[in-house]
């Protein structure tokens, strides 16, 4: 049951998942909100490609890290809201820790003369 298609965003897939979970750690949000939050919070550095965002959201949902619920948005439209599950929170903590160690290690290596 391996996914056959190689996804162009695959390299950053782990990162995208982490960012999505981080965004949802603050409370439930719809897909557009997640994209906007990442965009703004990163001071417009990170731009999430929507074509990758939705598959990522659904993948996380299938893995049981997110749940979703249909609700009404601020402008009174039907929208799908995602929120972090308990195991999602655990996963977020683990991946955050992992990311810190990785980026620290990479930074240390890059700082050498």
């Amino acid at each position: 049951m391996k996914e056959k298609r190689e996804n162009p965003g695959d390299l950053l897939q782990g990162t995208l998942d982490l960012l999505i979970m981080k965004a949802l750690a603050r409370g439930s949000m719809h897909g557009y909100g997640v994209a906007e939050w990442i965009h703004q919070t990163s001071d417009d550095v990170l731009k999430v490609e929507e074509g990758a965002l939705y598959p990522a959201l659904h993948r996380l949902e299938l893995r049981g890290l997110l749940t979703s619920q249909w609700g009404t948005s601020d402008n009174n439209r039907r929208a799908k809201f995602y929120s972090l599950t308990a195991s999602g929170k655990k996963q977020l903590a683990q991946e955050t820790e992992f990311w810190r160690r990785m980026s620290g290690a990479v930074t240390r290596i890059l700082q050498t003369a």
Binding site: E3, E50, G51, A52
Partner: peptide, 21 residues
């Protein structure tokens, strides 16, 4: 334009929800 290929995104998502093999 910003969204990119809507059809592909939908299909990829759809595949995820089904037993592709």
């Amino acid at each position: 334009r910003q969204f990119g290929n809507c059809g592909l995104a939908k299909e990829r998502t759809r595949d995820m929800w089904t037993f592709a093999a």
